[in-house]
Each structure stands twice: as structure tokens, then as C-alpha cells.
Design a protein around this nucleic acid. Sequence first.
DNA 1: CAGTAATCGAGACGGTACGTCGTGTCTTATA
DNA 2: TATAAGACACGACGTACCGTCTCGATTACTG
Lengths: 208, 208, 208, 208
Amino acid sequence: MSESEDSRQTGPRTRGRPRNADADAAILSATRDLLAERGWPDLTIAEVAARAGVAKTTLYRRWPGKADLVVDAMAELFSHLEVLDRGSMLQDALATVGQYVELLQLPETQAALLALSAEADRDASLRAKVIDKVIDPQRHLVYEAWERACARGEVEGETDIDLIFDMICGTLVHRILIKGQPVDQEYLTRFVSVVLAGLAQLRLAGGI
Amino acid sequence: MSESEDSRQTGPRTRGRPRNADADAAILSATRDLLAERGWPDLTIAEVAARAGVAKTTLYRRWPGKADLVVDAMAELFSHLEVLDRGSMLQDALATVGQYVELLQLPETQAALLALSAEADRDASLRAKVIDKVIDPQRHLVYEAWERACARGEVEGETDIDLIFDMICGTLVHRILIKGQPVDQEYLTRFVSVVLAGLAQLRLAGGI
Amino acid sequence: MSESEDSRQTGPRTRGRPRNADADAAILSATRDLLAERGWPDLTIAEVAARAGVAKTTLYRRWPGKADLVVDAMAELFSHLEVLDRGSMLQDALATVGQYVELLQLPETQAALLALSAEADRDASLRAKVIDKVIDPQRHLVYEAWERACARGEVEGETDIDLIFDMICGTLVHRILIKGQPVDQEYLTRFVSVVLAGLAQLRLAGGI
Amino acid sequence: MSESEDSRQTGPRTRGRPRNADADAAILSATRDLLAERGWPDLTIAEVAARAGVAKTTLYRRWPGKADLVVDAMAELFSHLEVLDRGSMLQDALATVGQYVELLQLPETQAALLALSAEADRDASLRAKVIDKVIDPQRHLVYEAWERACARGEVEGETDIDLIFDMICGTLVHRILIKGQPVDQEYLTRFVSVVLAGLAQLRLAGGI
DNA sequence: CAGTAATCGAGACGGTACGTCGTGTCTTATA
DNA sequence: TATAAGACACGACGTACCGTCTCGATTACTG
């Protein structure tokens, strides 16, 4: 995630005026602000540039378009999650999923996440970027939580990380982003315990 | 749900030339076709009108914009689901969820569903339409499946329909629409059994 | 001018519901009012109909379009001029031209006369209507004034009515409608006396 | 008059990409061509842009609308008149007025001049542009012709330039543009001699 | 320390879709 | 048959955003 675009890792850049190092951060920050203020459809490249104090040219030199820009802006937001150690698998899960819920409830996330996925429908390379930079980095959280529970002796063996991941993210996306409903503590607790119960079942049955 | 816009149920219409009754169906059908062919961002009102053999004006007289039009087009697609009776709760669920998966895998659904939800982010009235016409009509499937299982004696009491609904729809949306991955028979079976296991847990614990 | 359109003199109309006799006057009056209020480009058939308390259909059954409607509306305005007898050729001319000036200064005339002539550029039948119904009816004023002057013995023989007519109408149209300047008493007196002087020259030289 | 719009004389232009210098001429030329081909009502901005090989945006960046565009297109046409020296006041006048007649008989002029004046009825700023750029530049012709005649000793003192100007332009506009009749050599000669006779009268009477 | 090369701000450009408006025609029920 | 009401096909409007381009000006590294 430190390289926000492919065109930027071309080795030790030498000739010519170097790029303004502050611009990237200003642009991504402006992008998030405007996503929160205006929503995806009314987010214009020109306004992002203006807000960041940068020319449109500069922005287009670094990102090919609105979608790629927003991917990187969201990636920064989603790069700070980690599995919290709360002593038990249930508590770990509650705390970690809670962090994820908070992210989903940010206005910039609400504006961007579904829009990006929608845009990615006909654009395989965009879909790859969304998955690589925003979605998949969260998958390791499930893995780590499972490993920690194993280390504690709460569970053993392997499980279906992908399925669990889809269930957690998907359910919350459906609740928060698609239906626009809040996730309170009770809903969260109930949800996590259902998932953990199912997860146990998964292990017992050995994939049915 | 058969009324595609509020302005159309105004009692015993008398004055003036009546609206062309065929146009609605032609427009919605053209909308779905073009969604599948071009995707959401390249779906233009002008082309829908042309494909439906209708003037742009006529289309705007019936729907305020692209999003509202697509809501109704999708609503028709999603109005044919029902709970299949396969003899057991597990088999009922597999068959019914399988129908839903097929809908999610249609190119028109892939083009439209997330785009609509994204567009609805800042537009409460659009969100309400999406939920009322596309999302919520599927919720009764969960209810009916549960009732049938009760009647068979497989389960008893009540359960958290909303949570189960979010889990089923959300997981599949995440898998199919967001990550763009296929749902095969194995994934489906595994998923459904995890949900049913969790559901049993939900009943036992009495909401934790 | 009593028959405002060709489609209306079809003999002794018999079958079916007869046309509303008041509608013509109401429509022409509404047309003049709206010309004065909104100007030619913003005059819409729909609004004329509404103002006249009539359906668009009714209007289109009587006039083929906006231009023809306005021709008749203007024709009524221009149908009341006559040569005033003020005792001398100069005074007759001043009084009669003064009437014409007043017509040109009406807002409805300002809105309509040049617009009609412009519209007539590519439409020979419209040009014929404008000339027959609005322009040429005034030409006889020149003829009558000349005849009266002859009868008084102020002048004798013939003159070039067409040229004099073009000069009088044209000069005032240029001043009032094209340049938008007022015609005061001094300008009018000076103008008429120049024309009369030229007219004398015309007679003397016998066409140069 | 060479500057087609006020927004274009902004001193030593520096910042940003400069405007395409050829575009103005191409647009104005396309405008005249299409005026001649289609007439004013069927002249569309989109077609002018296409014909000039320019985007609609570019055209709107330079002119606020159809009328302003046509004013400049006509201004170019009317900017080439001059008083010809034919040895006598009468011959000078015949030659110069003859040039003007030729301009009025061009199809682009027939399409545009009255339409512009009509459009200017409710738009003071447009009226000012029409007068400043198309009408008034011809007024000096009358002045120069008079001065030359004075220098020759044919006439002396001052005269009412405005009135003479209205009479010349107005009469020909009425004949050619409003009535759509041709101006042949005989009409022209007769007309000019009447005006000159009246002009002499004007001088003698000292304004009546 | 001049030359080269890439960056930057600014804004014009070609293109495309938008949603609105006016036209003149039509289709209904009613008079 | 005329009427009021209003839907209809059509086509132009003027606006907005996109992503590209062309400028002059700046800012480093290079030879």
C-alpha cells in the first residue's frame, strides 16, 4: 500500500523535476473528505484536485481515473485493522468485527465501497485492485484470530477461512451498506455467536 | 410492486390520452438487456428509450431517472422467487438459496444491484425503493422456510429472521458481486449447513 | 380579415358539433397579450391555449402553427388605420404616419413584426400571408393620401406608390424596431417633409 | 469589431492552454454557410460546431448563444463596405448603396438580420451588440459621402445623418428583407435620387 | 553552471450524456 | 363533428464532467 500506483515504483527516479511528495497524501485526504461530503456520484476529479490544491494534470499523472483514486483512498482507511487480544475467541471476534463495523459506518466508506464494487463489474483490473487493496487485506484477520484460538486450545485443525470471511464481511455489508441499518451491540453479539457456532459445526462435520 | 411508479395508480383514469400500456414492459425489458450488455455506467436513458421504441420524454414521464428505472427492472427479476419444498429444511434451503444464487449471477444483476445500493447512499427515497421492491420481498422466503420446518417438526419457536436474512444475502453478495467469485455446489452446501448450525445455536441460547 | 384561416370558410358548416365562435377572438387576444408580455421566442402555443381557456387541439385545428397565428393576431391590430383629413397633404401625412408609428411602438408589434418577417425568409407561403394581411393593407393609405392631395390640387399626375411606401414603412421600422429608438414629433416632422420633398422631385424628373 | 467577444482581449495572456486561434474564423464561417443553407430557425449550434470541426463546448466557451454568434458572423460580412469615389455625389451614393443592396440580398443576411433584430426585442444587451457591430458601422458611410460632396462643393453645411441613414437602410430592408422583392437598377436610381432631393430640402429648410 | 528533462498550475479542447422544453400529432372520453 | 385533457415522437437546448492537450514556469539532476 505504500505504492499507490504502478507508475510510481519505477526504480530510482532520476531525471527531471521530482514529484511533489506531499501531493499524494493531500489528494487521498481530499478524496475521502469529498466522498464523505458529496457521495460517489457527485465526487468530481476537478473538485478533488482543487481541494488538494493541485492541478488536474497532477492528479491524472498519478491515477488513471476516479475509481483507482478512490481505491487507494479507501485502502488507507482499511489498512489499520488488527486482531485485538481480548482473552477468548468470542471476545477477540467481537472486538475485531466491531472495528470493521466502525469502518463500514464511516460516510466515506458508505459512499465508496459499493460504488467501487459496482464499477468493477465490467473492469477486471479494477476488481483486482479493489480486492487486493481493500478486501483481501482483511482476510488475514480471520486467519490470525483462528490461529490465536488454536494457540489457546479453544479450537484445533483448519477451517474454511474464505467462507467465514465472506459471511462476516457480507452480512455486515448487507446490513450497513445495502440496507442502511445500524449494527448495535446486541445484533453484533448475536451475529458473532451464530458464526462461531457454525464454525464449530464446520469443523465437526469436516465439510459435511 | 406491479405499479412501477406512484403516479400510475390514480384511480379511474379518464381525462386525456391514456398511457401506452405496453411501454412499461418494453422499457423495463430493454433496461435489463442493456444492463447485461453494457453495464451500469454505460447504460444511457437515450439508448433504453431507443431500444424500447419509445421517446426519451415518455421514459422520463414514468421514471424520474436511471436509478428508479433500474429498481423497477430489477424488481421484476426478483419477484419470482419462492420456497421450494424438498422434504427437509436443509434441502429446502439449498434449493431456495440456489435460486437466489442464480439471480445474483445474471449479468444484469451484477451490473445493477451494487450500483443501486451505492446510488442509494445519499438518496433516502431511492434506498427505500430498493429495499421495498428488491431486497425485502425476499425476506419472507426465510420466514416461510422456517415455518415449513416448524410444521415438519424439525425446529420450533422463533428465530431472528432479519439476521438470518442478512447472513444469507450478504454472504452471497460478497462472494458473487463484490469479489466476483463463483458459488459452486460445494461452497453452497457448506455455507447453508453453517448457517443452519448457527441457527440452531441461536434457538438454544435464546439470543445469547 | 374576417376569415382568419383558409380552413374556416368551408361553406355552410353543418354536421357535428359547431366550433366555438368565441374561441378565435380569445385566442388572438391571448396571443397579443403574451407577445407583449413574453416576446416572440418565449411565446408558446401551449401557453396561448391556456390563457385563452382552450385546448391545444382547438388552436391547432384553426391555425397550422405559431407564425400563422401571430399573423392573424397582428392583422387585427393593423386593420384599423385610415387616412386622416387634416386639410393639407403635409398634415394628412403627419397624422397618418403618426398612427403607424404608434402601432410600431406597441410591445406586441415589436415582438412580432420582425420575427414574422424573419420566419418568412424560407417560407414563401408565410411571407405571402404576412404581406397580404399585415403589410399591403397599409399601402392603400399612401394611394389615398395622394389622391386626396390631387383632389385638393396640391399635386397632380401619378407617383411611385411602392417606393414611397417602402420609404415610409422602412424608415420607421429601422428606427423603431431595428434600432429600438423612439420617434418624437421633431423626427417625424423632419422625416415626412423630406419624403414629400423627394416625392415632388420624383414627379418633376419623371423617373430621372 | 475584430474581437468577436469581450472575454478575448485580456491583455498578455499567459496561464493555461491558449485558445485555438483558427477556431473563431472557422466557426463564424460555418455559421454563415449554415445560415445560407438552412436559415435562422434551423441553424443549430451543434451543427455549426460540427461543420467548424470544433466541440460544442468550445463554441459555448466563446459565445453565450446562437444570437451572439450570428451577430459576429454578420459583423464580419458588414465590415467591408466603403464609400466609393465615382466623381459625383449621386454616383458615389449609387455605388455605395449598391454594395449595401448586394449584402442584403445574400441568403445569410436574409436569414440573419431580421431574426437578430427580432431576438433583440427583449434583450437589451443583444440589441446593443447588433447595433454596435452590424448597424452603426455603416452609419459613417453616410457621413463620409456627405463630407466628400462638401469637399467637391456640391453641398455645404451639415445634415441629419441619422435620418438619412434610417431612410436608406430602412427602405432597402423593407423592400428586400421584409417584402422579399428585388432591387433593380431602376428602383435603386429612383430611390437614391428621391433621397438626395429630400436631403437638399432638409438643408434649405434648416430642419423645417 | 548551463543544459536537459520531468514536474507543476492553469485552462482550453473533443466528446458524450444529461434532463428539460417546445412542437405538432395522436388518442381517449365527453358533449 | 368539436372539445378538453394529456400522452406521444422528435429534436434542440445549454450544462456538466471526463480525460487529453498545450502552454509557460519551476525545479531538480547531469555533463
